[in-house]
C-alpha cells in the first residue's frame, strides 16, 4: 500500500484555503486528521489531484462558549480534545463521553471533529450526539459563509450538502432547555471497533413528563437517522418503562440497517431497540452523561 501521487498544499490562513478549494473543486481533498482520507488513498479508493491540509489554520481549533449563543467547537478540534474539554464536561458531558468511546486513543489523538462529520459514514460516533443537541455547522467559502443544522447536513454515505468549495469550520451547540442527553454505541470490542449500532438521545424533562425528545440512530441507515416515530411516541408523555420499550421498538421499526460483516440487519435492528430504550432511560434519569 502506497499513497498515490498528489500535490500538497498547506495554506497559512482560511482565505487562502478557501481560494485553493475553489480552484481545485472536486479534484482536491481536504486533509484534517487524515485518519479516513489517507487510509482511503492508500487503498486506492481515492486519488485526488491535490490534498489541501488545514493543519496551519489554528483558528479552527479549540472550544469556547459564547454567552447567549452556545458552545462553539472548532472543526479541527481533535476527538481527544473534545473528550477532555472541561467546558464540555460541565455543559454536555455526553459529547465528551461519545468522543471518548470512539475509535482508539491513537485515532482520537489525531482525528478531528470536523473530519468525523464531513466523512459522512453511517457508523460515525459524533454526529448522533451533536444532532440530538441541535448542533449547527458553519460552512465557509471564498464568497461567504452559511450555517446549517447538522440534521440537514447528511445526504448519503460519503455525501453531504457541503459544496466542493466549502470548508466546515465550526460546530455550534446552541443553548437549550434539554435536561439530559447521552449516546450508547455497540461495538464488537471495547476499543477500536466501529459501531454495529448506536443511539443518541436528548430529552427535555418536566418532572415525569417528557416535553421534547430527539433521537438519532447510528449505523441504522445510510445517514445518521432521526427516529421521529419514537420521538413522537414519548413527546408530551408521562415516562414509564413500558413507554420506553415502545419507543425502542418504534425506533427499530423505522430504522433501515443493512447486513455487513459486523452484524446482520436483523441483529442491528434489535440492538437499536435495546440501545434506544437504554439511552432514553439514561438521559432521563442521569442528565447529560
Amino acid at each position: 500500500m502506497y499513497l498515490p501521487d498528489f500535490d500538497y498544499y498547506a495554506p497559512p490562513d482560511l482565505v487562502e484555503a478557501c481560494q485553493l478549494v475553489r480552484e481545485f473543486g472536486n479534484s482536491a481533498k481536504i486533509l484534517a486528521g487524515g485518519t479516513d482520507l489517507l487510509h482511503k488513498m492508500k487503498h486506492t479508493e481515492l486519488a485526488p489531484e491535490a490534498v489541501i491540509s488545514l493543519k496551519k489554520l489554528s483558528e479552527l481549533k479549540g472550544i469556547r462558549y459564547l454567552p447567549g449563543q452556545g458552545v462553539i467547537i472548532g472543526a479541527l478540534t481533535t476527538q481527544n480534545e473534545l473528550a477532555d474539554s472541561p467546558l464540555l464536561h460541565r455543559k454536555y458531558r455526553s459529547v465528551c463521553e461519545a468522543a471518548h468511546n470512539m475509535a482508539n486513543n491513537q485515532i482520537r489523538h489525531i482525528g478531528t471533529v470536523g473530519g468525523n462529520i464531513v466523512n459522512a459514514v453511517p457508523s460515525a460516533d459524533l454526529p448522533p450526539i451533536l444532532m440530538v443537541l441541535g448542533a449547527k455547522v458553519k460552512l465557509v467559502n471564498i464568497d461567504g459563509e452559511r450555517t446549517v443544522p447538522l440534521d440537514e447536513f447528511f445526504l448519503g454515505v460519503h455525501q453531504t450538502i457541503r459544496r466542493d468549495d466549502e470548508i466546515l469550520t465550526e460546530i455550534e451547540i446552541p443553548d437549550q432547555k434539554t435536561t439530559g442527553s447521552t449516546s450508547i454505541r455497540f461495538g464488537l470490542r471495547k476499543s477500536g471497533a466501529l459501531a454495529v449500532a448506536g443511539a443518541a438521545v436528548a430529552v427535555e424533562m418536566d418532572g415525569e413528563t417528557c416535553r421534547s425528545a430527539r433521537i438519532v440512530l447510528a449505523a441504522a441507515a445510510p445517514v445518521p437517522m432521526r427516529a421521529r416515530a419514537a420521538e413522537r411516541l414519548i413527546t408530551g408523555q408521562q415516562i414509564t418503562p413500558d413507554l420506553l420499550e415502545q419507543a425502542g421498538a418504534a425506533a427499530a421499526r423505522e430504522s433501515n440497517p443493512r447486513d455487513s460483516i459486523r452484524g446482520s440487519a436483523e441483529y442491528r435492528r434489535d440492538l437499536i431497540r435495546i440501545l434506544t430504550r437504554r439511552a432514553l432511560h439514561k438521559a432521563i434519569t442521569e442528565g447529560h452523561v
Binding site: 482508539n104 464488537l188 470490542r189 471495547k190 476499543s191 477500536g192 471497533a193 466501529l194 460483516i261 459486523r262
Partner: peptide, 16 residues
C-alpha cells in the same frame, strides 16, 4: 478476505 486488517479482524485490546 473481507477483514484483512486489525480493525475488522478483532484481536482483543488491553481494555478487553
Amino acid at each position: 478476505i473481507l477483514n484483512a486488517n486489525l480493525s475488522d479482524y478483532r484481536v482483543p485490546t488491553a481494555l478487553d
